[in-house]
Amino acid sequence: MGTYWQDERNRGRSDGALGSASSSRRSERDRDPAGAAALAPVIRALSAEPTDRELDGMGPALAAFRARVRQQATGSRRHRVFATLLGAKVGATLAGVAAGLVGVSTVVLVSTHVPGGAQPPGGPAAPAQARPAAVSTTATPHGPDANGPAKHGLCTAWRARSQNPGAQGHADQSVAFTNLVKAAGGANKVAAFCADVLAPGAAGNQGGGKGSGKPTGKGSGKPTKQPGHQAKDDDKATGKPGDVPNGQRTDTPTDEPTDEPTSTPTTEPTDEPTTTSTAEPTDEPTTTAIPTAPTGTPVPQTSGTVEPSQTVVP
């Protein structure tokens, strides 16, 4: 450390432009060697190696450091979660539209193929009422009967939604799902209610497991958007009711399973594909039931316009 002060003296000399510097410089020159010698032990002691006591007590500082790191981590994680939520919301919107279409079409298809005698309310006898019902969309909505032929489609749609947590809010509030929940006796019983319908599907239990837990939580969060989505579903459902059933029906039914999975995943943006792509294929087994009744081609045309009006009622 003696060199340190040596440097200091030199520096003082080199820029010693201060007015009082000259006198002190002389005394410095007179005294410093002895002063430096006397000071050496003090300097050495002041700059001695750290003692244990001085290195003790990092605890509070380290704790504060950890807390700060944790804070930063959660902050950035919050950022990330927000971003993924945003993505999930967009994905859920698209998936909701897709699931709505699929659900509606399956409702249409399935309900038309249930044996006529087994249908209490809106069976083949319904076509006569179809037009009035479609026109009076503003009338009080009653929706499809979940105990009737619509059960299969509703359950399928419900499961599709339940695998899309973001769409729960819409699912809970639509008339169709309200009917389903009512028929099941509660949102958490829908899975059990639908068990027999969905059982044939390989992923039936999957839908049941998820459906039971989630619906209750998110319902209140997004009510404002719901009408919009419903309207969107309405438009698409009522817009081309003739197209969808006809096209699928008259074209080769065997193509459907292969077509749909490839088309729907492309609509999914980023986050969802793993869940929805597994969801969509599970829908398909229900449409493979179609070949059993392709003979009834005339029926779907009429009832095809009926069912959307029923399920779609806002």
Partner: peptide, 12 residues
Amino acid sequence: RVAAHRGLHALA
């Protein structure tokens, strides 16, 4: 600089 100078002198 002045304070350092005087301080070291005083310390010595």
